[in-house]
Amino acid sequence: MKIGNIEVKVSNISIAVFVFFTISLILASQYSAEVRSNLIWMIPALFMLLVIPVALNYMSRSQYVDLVPEYERLAKTVRVKLINENMIGKVVRIEGVVERVHFQFLNRPQFSVADRSGAISVKMFTSPDENIKVNDVVEVLGQVIRRYMVTGDPVINCVSIRKKNAQASDD
């Protein structure tokens, strides 16, 4: 779904919650007169279960879209091996192969991206522009942070992850 120039994605978990409560409401309204009398506010509340995640996704996606040009300007292309805890807060660009993808169903994907020098966790707090899968060659733009904000090993807080081969074909 596109709002303005922002591609908004609803997570599978939000859809599952919406479907679950819709079915529950339909069944409950069949058997309970009290539920039927309250449908006037229950149906809008049900739709809010979809509208709120869409609105949140739109807000975070638009923030990320605004950040990309600034990150493009500041980022330095580095090998994964050069990223270390002394670089916390630095904006970097890495290129590599996606080895693992987790939590995509929550719209909070976490990738493991490897180049010839090593692998690093890439965390994203919104859905990426493209559907990134294992073995895709990608370019990651983000900031080096600690895994648990104040502690842990360095990971990349990703602002943009793009397929390299797709980019090449676009050019």
């Binding site: 330095k76 580095v78 050069l82 270390n84 002394n86 670089m87 630095k90 970097v92 080096v144």
Partner: peptide, 9 residues
């Protein structure tokens, strides 16, 4: 070394 490790290339 110190500058390189902090990404101050």
């Amino acid at each position: 070394i110190s500058q390189f490790s902090t990404g101050e290339y």
